[in-house]
């Protein structure tokens, strides 16, 4: 479990528009990496390129390579569907499947792929995933109720449970707390700290305090102006970024001078 991600010379395009330019970095296993930066700087685009989710958008394409423990996920013959089973993703807005119960939501990754699974194994998987997402105690009595009946924070943890039930190596989170209240946010942040023991976690956040609280390393994305490509300006230990950044733009951003 948990793999290292090596990004080399990654350029991401929407049609002819270069959205993210020349990103090279290494994301360590069993750590939380936060990506911060102003709106439209390409951090979410970059995150989606880490499990080929950007391909869902028509016209999006990538040059360069992203390696998962040495395997290039953009190599010839690579199936993006299999990449996504290794690299899971949690979205900004909690999105449990409305037609499914809580239990079915957790098992979605298995069931939707037409995989056969024994009843006892399924129940084990549901319990371990929900426990892993710190949700078990809250929902164990109503596993057959619709997932959309939960509160926002519970729904987001259900989505995390659903993601880890597929047993990925990496979990990507795209502003997972921006639609949540402070208490739910705390619950999700606590969960991240636990998940870090088993997974490589990359989180995009608008909230600099959150990045400082939860992450081991932080990357700062920026653009020089509208229409220009986003770039990874600085990537370092979180304490270094927030206390003693080496780039002027990083310092301006974290001290609130823009963004």
């Amino acid at each position: 479990m948990s793999k290292q991600i090596d990004v080399k010379d990654l350029n991401i395009y929407y049609g002819d528009f270069l959205a993210v330019q020349d990103v090279s970095t290494t994301i360590a296993p069993r750590s939380i990496t936060a990506l911060i930066g102003p709106s439209g700087c390409g951090k979410s685009t970059f995150l989606r390129a880490l499990n080929r989710m950007h391909e869902v958008i028509p016209g999006a394409k990538v040059k360069g390579s992203v390696e998962l423990d040495g395997q290039d996920m953009y190599g010839r013959g690579v199936d993006p569907v299999l990449v996504r089973r290794k690299v899971g993703m949690v979205f900004q807005k909690p999105n449990p499947f409305p037609t499914m119960s809580i239990k079915e939501n957790v098992l979605a990754g298995v069931k939707l792929n037409n995989k056969r699974i024994k009843k006892s194994e399924a129940e084990e998987l549901v319990e371990s995933s929900l426990k892993g997402a710190n949700l078990w105690n809250e929902v164990k009595d109503r596993l057959d109720k619709p997932g959309s009946g939960l509160s926002g924070g519970q729904q987001q943890r259900l989505c995390i449970a659903r993601t880890i039930a597929v047993k990925p190596e990496v979990v990507l989170m795209d502003e997972p707390c921006s639609a949540l209240d402070p208490i739910s946010t705390l619950a999700v942040e606590d969960l991240m700290a636990e998940l870090k023991n088993d997974y490589t976690i990359v989180i995009v956040t608008h909230n600099m305090q959150q990045a400082a609280r939860v992450s081991d390393k932080t990357g700062f994305f920026n653009i020089e102006g509208t229409g220009k490509p986003g770039k990874l300006v600085e990537y370092d230990e979180t304490s270094k970024i927030f206390n003693n950044p080496s780039e002027k733009a990083t310092e301006d951003y974290i001290s609130g001078r823009f963004g």
Binding site: Q71, D72, G75, R76, G77, V78, D79, L82
Partner: peptide, 13 residues
């Protein structure tokens, strides 16, 4: 760039 053949884990052929 030249790249190694993708590992079997991620391919479906």
């Amino acid at each position: 760039q030249t790249r190694e053949p993708a590992a079997a884990e991620l391919t479906t052929g």
